[in-house]
Each structure stands twice: as C-alpha cells, then as structure tokens.
C-alpha cells in the first residue's frame, strides 16, 4: 500500500519534470513529435526501473556507513558514501549501453528515430536524479525503489508525450510571436503544465 502510494505520488506530485525539472534537456530537444517522445519516454522509464533497484542494492550493501558489516565486524565502520556518485553513474552508463544494444537489435526503426538520444540517456538528469533522491530519502526496501523508479519514469513519459502533442498542434493552430517560437514557447508551456500539476499536491491513497 505504501509503495502504491509512493508510485502514484512519484507520477503526479513528485513529477520529475514538473516538480524537479530533471531531464529537461532531452525533454526540450525530443518533444517535437509524439512518436519519438513516446520512444524516449519508454526508454527513460525502463532505465529508471532497472537502475534504481541496482543502485539501491549498491547503496545498502556497499556504500552506506556500516553497509559493509556483512563482510565482517572490522568493516562495520567503513563509510564509502563519497563514492556513490561515481558508482551510480557507472551503473547508469553501462546499463544505457546495454539498452542501446538491445534496441538496436530488436527495433531498428526506434533506434533510427531516437538516434543520438539513446546515449544521452546516460546523462539524462532524471535517471541519476532518481538514484540520488533514493539515497537522500533512505528508501526502506527494494520494492520501494522499484515503485518509485516506475512512478518517476511514467511521470516523465506522461510529461514528454503531453508536451509533444501540444507542440505538434502549435505549429498549425497558433500564431506565436517569432522570437518565442521553438524552445521559448516550450518553456512557457511546461511552466503552465507544471502549475496545473501542482493541483495534485497532497494527494494520498
């Protein structure tokens, strides 16, 4: 129940884009049409669901203060948390490589349309951000990590697909001042959607 609550909260209240602005770079760059946006969204969700539990295990059994006590009592005072950044990013980078190879093999069309954005997932702030929030908030079990990862991923997916859909229509139905076209209006749109998403604040199941 608690995990379900966290899952829902991660989608709507703690939305990666509208509440923390993580993963904005690819968000702005890839949200030109719905199809690519959907592909990237799925890839990000997938990465979050995979990397969060792995990093959770790493954090609990290797990095935290006293986490190494399973090796023997003499390791109980070891605190490796200053290494967490490097290890987290290494996990994320290698998983990205793996996903990239899988996508290339099984869905060349998607691979073609995502192009350079697949490697960029490694530097998508949303994914490292997820792991860091996990560490900061001290998640209690691996299921918590999975549900938060899924929630954040789906929240990100929702946001990017929604913006892409709006931007597709903007081109035909609106007359935006010239200097504002492109990324300018995207920012303002995201802001307006962010304000809308704030109405979910305090939601509980």
């Amino acid at each position: 129940m608690e995990n379900l609550n966290l899952f829902i909260r991660s989608i709507f209240v703690d939305n990666m884009i509208f509440a923390y602005f993580l993963g904005m770079c690819s968000f702005v760059a890839v949200s030109k049409n719905v199809k690519t946006a959907l592909g990237l969204g799925v890839a990000v969700t997938f990465m979050l669901v995979i990397t969060l539990p792995i990093n959770y295990l790493l954090n609990t059994y290797v990095l935290q203060a006293g986490a190494l006590s399973w090796l023997g009592p003499e390791y109980a005072s070891v605190d490796l948390s200053f290494l967490s950044l490097i290890l987290f990013i290494a996990v994320i980078a290698s998983m990205t490589q793996l996903v990239e190879m899988a996508v290339e093999k099984y869905s060349p069309a998607l691979y073609g349309s995502l192009g350079i954005f697949l490697p960029l997932i490694a530097v998508n702030c949303a994914i490292l951000g997820g792991s860091l929030f996990m560490q900061q908030r001290g998640f209690s079990s691996i299921m918590t990590a999975v549900s938060a990862g899924a929630g954040w991923g789906i929240g990100w997916l929702l946001a990017i697909v929604a913006i892409a859909a709006i931007r597709e229509r903007l081109a035909t139905y609106s007359n935006i001042p010239k200097p504002l076209r492109g990324i300018g209006i995207t920012f303002i749109l995201t802001a307006l959607m962010g304000i809308a998403f704030m109405s979910f604040l305090g939601i509980k199941i």
């Binding site: 509208f18 509440a19 923390y20 602005f21 504002l180 300018g184 209006i185 995207t186 920012f187 303002i188 995201t190 802001a191 307006l192 962010g194 304000i195 704030m198």
Partner: peptide, 9 residues
C-alpha cells in the same frame, strides 16, 4: 518552480 521556466522563456 514553474515560474523559473516562464522567466527563462
């Protein structure tokens, strides 16, 4: 947070 986006916009 959303206002930062509007300012950047």
């Amino acid at each position: 947070p959303p206002m930062a986006l509007i300012v950047v916009g």
